[in-house]
Design a protein around this nucleic acid. Sequence first.
DNA 1: ACTCAATTCTGAGTACACTCAATATCGAGG
DNA 2: CCTCGATATTGAGTGTACTCAGAATTGAGT
Lengths: 240, 240
Amino acid sequence: MDTRDDTELAPSATLGRRERAKAEKRARILAAARALFEERGFERTSMSEVARAADVAEGTVFQYAATKVELLMMVVDALWGAHERATTTPSLSAFAAPGAATAGGETADRIAELISPLVTAMRRWSELAAWVAREILFGADMPHRRRVLDHVDRLEEKIAARLQDGRADASGAIGAARDGATGTAGEEPGAAAAAGARLIVAGVLAELNRSRQRRIDGENVDVVLRRLIDLVVAGAGAAR
Amino acid sequence: MDTRDDTELAPSATLGRRERAKAEKRARILAAARALFEERGFERTSMSEVARAADVAEGTVFQYAATKVELLMMVVDALWGAHERATTTPSLSAFAAPGAATAGGETADRIAELISPLVTAMRRWSELAAWVAREILFGADMPHRRRVLDHVDRLEEKIAARLQDGRADASGAIGAARDGATGTAGEEPGAAAAAGARLIVAGVLAELNRSRQRRIDGENVDVVLRRLIDLVVAGAGAAR
DNA sequence: ACTCAATTCTGAGTACACTCAATATCGAGG
DNA sequence: CCTCGATATTGAGTGTACTCAGAATTGAGT
């Protein structure tokens, strides 16, 4: 009944009645899902509630998202996309420790900066975030999830780039190790950085959930996350 | 309700008829669940099938495992426990790269050794493993899961210990950093090692699942996991 | 205006995880 | 052996995610 569409996709333009109706329906479903997930949580929202709120039949919802989890991913994709569009200037390190120099050094700061929005978002929607994290890492391959993964991939690429930068710096352990020596056979140079980025993301998702379950307050979570980044940047040998 | 220890098989000993019947039922359910999960997979096995195979009513299964996932965790706990009991000598690094020296050095080898059985097990039961990994990292707190987590915790402690050892060695980056200097305020010295261990476990679980979904062959997975460990041991600065 | 094939929508139906009130079973005390 | 409280078992019942065969809608072609 209530069409509080927002977020995105104005139907507008020159489209057939059919396409327009579809876009509208999609928007209604998205809005209904988002609202209900936010106010009642993921588990306690039923698909039929979403359908009712979006004023469509239950089966219709499944045409736009094949699964309840996919519906969640659809919402996340929309939110993430909106955030990306709105953010030219990346929010200045909301939690990168201001004073205290840590083993990871500046590179770690620059990475903390990158994941800061993710951390903030996951704190804000902690119940949903647990589901999202779970599905990002272990979900089945489906279209809406794929789109969320694309966002994650982009984030990981940025992290990898900064890891790569840091490698040349003094901060990185065995700074001399550069390209030569070590390592398994011939691989692309960025492979380690990419692995590091994936490791950081997986670690952050797991650690955020862990602290949620243990009800650890935000302050300490920051410390934990920061240490996690330091570990990847500088290794256990260096981290305090 | 819950008869503490037992862990599994052999009702044996002097117990009331009731206790014995309970243990037998538990064993039957465990065996049925394991067999069905193995041959048909987790999702495609229904609770009523398990009940039928174990020759108990459906409701009875739920008395021993409050949830389908809990039933899976019950199976995993039993398997893991059996493995632990059977293993005095830890299986010599099934996948720790034999030749090639990597950035992580010997410490990484010693850690690879520790997670090797986990990797082997997850490869063997890849479909189930995905569910297990997912529940270990993101599941709700329930008794059988808790027991599995205890196993994970023990593994993490061992990993942490080896990380700690490695810290003094030359292999660890900035070997000099020892205890003094750096880091956030006063914390237990093992905190970083513990965090590193958790990071490795989370990373391995995620990476194994990732390669399962992308159908990457075992060889390459070994390389990826090895690199992951190297990263935590020596940091991105060092890793090739 | 009138087909008509293609697409979209619909909601009753299905499968299955989980619940719970009733029932069966046990064993300690008489 | 009998009684009775405690505990374990049972299976019909419930809620809900998901399916699918038919109904409705659309727009291109005539």
